[in-house]
Amino acid sequence: MFTWSVLIIILSYSTQCWTHGSLYTDAGKSEKTCKPLKSFSVDIKCNRNGLEVDCTKPVLNGTTAEISCKPFFHFPPYDNIPSFYNRLACVDGLWDYNLLPCIPICGKKNEKSKRVRRIIGGGNTGIGEYPWHVGIYSKRTIRKKTVYSQICGGSIINPKVVITVAHCFESKDPKNYGVGAGKYYRPWKDNRDENAQLRNVEQIFIPESYKGLSNNFANDVAILVVNDPFVFDNFVRPVCVDWTTNTKKDLLKMGSIGFVPGWGVDQEGGKKSAVLKDIQLPFVPYDECYSKSDQNFRPIVNLADKFCAGRTDGQNICKGDSGGGLAFQGHDVHHSGEIFYLMGISSIGPSKTGSCDPTKYTTFTKLSHHAKWAQNIIKIHTSAYKDFNGWSLDS
């Protein structure tokens, strides 16, 4: 039920007023109205008696609404909302069906990306090749000017939420951080990043059990809620997440290859990369990772929320890559083809003379281990969005 302040409207020399979801005229007649239709994921076109109507306001009986998924959203298993759901009618003050949300198309690389030319031993990505990858930036004030420094990576999992690792955040004050999506160049504002979407961090969530080095970086995971939703396009889109253990069993096994992008150090002891790079890292079974790790690194390998991936040939991730998502290609259950699922988050690797050791395996935080914690936060703290199959989308 909507409560409206009485509003006098002069229309065709007659007086009309809205109150409590009904339209009253000077003739004393009243007509019930249907509530406004608003959606983050659905395009809505309304008309009444052949005339276009604004459905973001209460509408009269007889109004119809044609609905379809916005670009970069779909209605699984269909590409768009099927015909038996895509038309609503305002009847006796109520819409005859609920407005159904669409969900984002996830885990798709930008097909239009162009690889410019392979993190240590890695190579340059194409622009927009990993549309879910973001840079996380610390903010400092120097001489009354805000300076941004890229410190970590992260992955978009819904329009308001980025997932990364806890050890990126020395300060827990969200005002000290920003998130850059759709970026290829590392600097916060680079004129060449025509597709960048820059956001402030509104909230930071880290498990209470995370204690850093004193607990071997167990529970090294963090969720960021940004101030404004990302607008999905060719260059900014989420990675797929399966909160069940089904995908983990299929993808985290011997022979699986994961992909991780980042702006981290591109050679041992070197500087951070100026452009986004990526590398392919094979999943490493526990026994092999444990046996080939140094004694002082084995307690981290032993953690229940970690798994190993990497190489021993001098190609690996390094400082600045923390928080980046390790995504594996899996089957799209709704359509033919392959999509990328986020399985791990770059956590801790062995060090060598103060830098990373590209000849050792790296640990990744296992996303499935923190599924319940993450889902609860997403549901509670993106409450302006309705939850639909794990996504928080519609207002």
Rank of each mutant, 00 (worst) to 15 (best):
E268S: 02
V284T: 07
N219M: 10
A27D: 14
F232R: 04
G212F: 03
I142G: 06
L326N: 10
L213Q: 15
T125E: 12
T363W: 03
S293E: 00
E111H: 13
E288R: 12
E338I: 03
T244S: 06
N124C: 12
V179S: 01
S12N: 12
R48E: 01
S39W: 06
I378A: 04
D332C: 08
G337R: 00
A309Q: 04
I157H: 03
N246G: 03
A384Q: 13
G344Q: 07
D173Q: 09
A327D: 02
K29G: 01
S291D: 13
P207L: 11
V236C: 08
T25S: 12
F364G: 00
Q280F: 00
S395C: 13
I151A: 05
T19S: 15
L51Q: 14
K145W: 05
Y341V: 04
L281M: 07
C46S: 10
R192D: 09
K292Y: 14
G337H: 03
N246C: 00
T63G: 07
G21I: 05
T244E: 06
E129P: 01
D313R: 06
T63W: 02
S368K: 02
G269I: 02
F297L: 01
D220Q: 07
S14I: 08
L198W: 08
F217D: 04
E338H: 05
E170N: 13
I345D: 00
S351C: 02
C17V: 15
S256I: 08
N200S: 09
T359H: 09
Q315W: 09
T64M: 14
D96L: 07
